[in-house]
C-alpha cells in the first residue's frame, strides 16, 4: 500500500521534472530565436524539410478528406432535403476542426517524428557535443531554427489542407452529385464568419504547430543517446503530439465556440 503510494509519488515527480525540463528547454530555444534574423538561411533549410517535404501528404490527404466529406455529407443531407447546404457543412467542419487537427496529426507523423529522430541521432553520434566543443551552441544552431520552422509551417500547411479539402468536396458535390455551385459557395460564404471561424481555425493551427514542434525537438534532444532511445523518442513524439493536439482542441473549441 505504502509502496504503491511511493511509486505513484515517484512517477508524478518524474513527470513533473520532465515537464520542467521541457519548459526550460523551450525558454532556451526561444532565446536563440532572435539571432536567427541574421541567418534566415537556417530557417529556410528547415522550412524545406518540415514544410515542403510534408506538402505531398498534406495535399493528398486534404483532397481526399474533402471528397469523402462531400460524399458523406451529401448522402446525410439528402435525407433532410438540405443537400444544397453541403458547402456549409463541409466548410465549417473543415475550417473549424478537421483542418487544424488532421494537419497537426499528419505533421506529427511526417515532420515531428523526423525532427525527433534527426536530433536524437545527432545527439547519439555526438554531433551535438561536437558542436558544443566547437563553441557553437546547438540550441541556437540546431534547435531554434527547427522549432521556428515548425511554428511557421504548421498554419500554412493547415490552410493548404483546408482549402484543398473544400475544393475536393466542391468537385464531388458540384461536379459529381449536382449540388448547385451558387448554393455551394453562397451558403458557405453566408455561414462562415471570417473572425469566428477562419481566424479561430488559424489560431488553432498556430497553437498546434507550436506544441507539435516543441514536443518533437524536445523529445529528440532529451532522447537517450542510443538506437533504442531514439526510436522511443520518435514514437513518443507522435503519441504525445496526438494526445496534446486532441486535448488542446477540446479546450480551444470550448473557449472559442462554446
Amino acid at each position: 500500500m505504502v509502496n504503491g503510494f511511493q511509486r505513484l509519488g515517484a512517477r508524478a515527480l518524474a513527470i513533473a521534472e520532465r515537464f520542467g525540463r521541457a519548459f526550460l528547454f523551450l525558454l532556451r530555444a526561444l532565446a536563440g530565436m532572435p539571432a536567427l534574423v541574421l541567418r534566415p538561411g537556417l530557417v529556410v533549410q528547415q522550412l524545406y524539410s518540415v514544410g515542403v517535404l510534408s506538402l505531398v501528404i498534406i495535399v493528398v490527404s486534404g483532397v481526399f478528406v474533402g471528397m469523402v466529406l462531400g460524399l458523406q455529407g451529401y448522402t446525410t443531407l439528402l435525407n433532410f432535403g438540405a443537400e444544397q447546404s453541403l458547402g456549409v457543412l463541409v466548410a465549417l467542419s473543415i475550417v473549424r476542426e478537421l483542418g487544424p487537427v488532421v494537419t497537426a496529426l499528419l505533421f506529427a507523423g511526417r515532420a515531428g517524428s523526423a525532427l525527433a529522430a534527426e536530433i536524437g541521432l545527432m545527439k547519439s553520434t555526438e554531433q551535438l557535443s561536437g558542436m558544443e566543443m566547437m563553441a557553437v551552441d546547438p540550441m541556437n544552431r540546431v534547435i531554434a531554427p527547427r522549432l521556428l520552422a515548425g511554428f511557421l509551417a504548421m498554419p500554412l500547411l493547415a490552410a493548404i489542407f483546408s482549402f484543398l479539402a473544400i475544393l475536393g468536396s466542391y468537385v464531388i458535390g458540384v461536379g459529381l452529385l449536382g449540388v448547385d455551385a451558387g448554393a455551394f459557395w453562397g451558403q458557405m460564404q453566408d455561414a462562415v464568419e471570417f473572425r469566428e471561424d477562419i481566424l479561430n481555425g488559424v489560431i488553432k493551427s498556430v497553437v498546434f504547430g507550436f506544441v507539435a514542434s516543441w514536443i518533437a525537438v524536445f523529445e529528440g534532444y532529451d532522447a537517450e543517446p542510443t538506437s533504442e532511445g531514439v526510436s522511443r523518442a520518435t514514437t513518443r513524439t507522435v503519441v504525445y503530439t496526438a494526445l496534446a493536439v486532441l486535448g488542446l482542441d477540446f479546450v480551444l473549441t470550448a473557449v472559442m465556440f462554446g
Partner: peptide, 19 residues
C-alpha cells in the same frame, strides 16, 4: 565557456562529423 572553447579543438573518439 564558449569563448574558451573557441581556442580549443577536439577530435572526438567517434569523429562526430555532421552527417
Amino acid at each position: 565557456l564558449y569563448k574558451l572553447r573557441r581556442r580549443m579543438g577536439m577530435l572526438f573518439q567517434s569523429g562526430a562529423l555532421f552527417t
